[in-house]
């Protein structure tokens, strides 16, 4: 009896995680599930070990052109270097999204991040010590516990790479 109760408790879904997933809301109209969906949202909520997405991300996020607009920066290279010096890079798509699957690279935390675009580089000031979702901290609006969306340049990021089809 006790064993059955314990089994029931251990199999119960994590209500905090369930809440976090639900809080993300529905998919945007006209954007199918895939690499272009949910820009600005914390990828790791669904693409972490608890799912529900099937693909698992070691790191993912969305890069915007500047701090004041929601204009995505496509075609940027996001480079990371981890504590051991291991490096990996990914390219942002037209939605500004990038992701690194955990089947491709698993960093030894912390990691440091920089963005390269159009011959220029922007480096993140602090390290990422564990968070697989860049957008978890880089959430809008900026405030006492959120830094605002991740952006490449204070002013002009250069020629736009175009928008998503």
């Amino acid at each position: 009896m006790v064993a059955l109760i314990l089994l029931g408790v251990s199999c119960r879904p994590d209500p905090v995680h369930e809440h976090d997933v639900t809080k993300l809301g529905n998919e945007a109209a006209g954007v199918p599930t895939g690499p272009l969906h949910r820009p600005g949202q914390p990828c790791g909520t669904c693409h972490g070990t608890q799912g529900p997405a099937e693909s698992r991300f070691a790191l993912g996020g969305t890069i915007y052109r500047d701090p004041n607009s929601a204009s995505a920066l496509g075609g940027a290279t996001v480079r990371i270097i981890d504590w051991t010096g291991a490096q990996y890079s990914a390219t942002t798509n037209c939605a500004g999204n990038f992701f690194i699957r955990d089947s491709d690279f698993v960093p030894s935390w912390p990691v440091w991040v920089k963005i390269e675009y159009s011959g220029k580089t922007a480096e993140m000031i602090s390290a990422d010590f564990r968070e697989t979702s860049c957008n978890a901290c880089h959430a809008d609006p900026a405030g006492p516990s959120a830094v605002g969306h991740a952006y490449f340049s204070e002013q002009d990021a250069g020629a736009p790479a175009g928008s998503c089809p």
Binding site: I125, S126, D128, F129, R130, C137, G143, P144, S145, V147
Partner: peptide, 26 residues
């Protein structure tokens, strides 16, 4: 940093410029 002890949900909180801010207008 915001992903660690700069998170408001932590009982051991560290405040500062690059992490959790104490005042709402910072």
């Amino acid at each position: 940093t915001l992903d660690c002890h700069g998170h408001p949900a932590r009982n051991f909180r560290v405040y500062g410029k690059q992490g959790l801010r104490l005042f709402g207008d910072d």
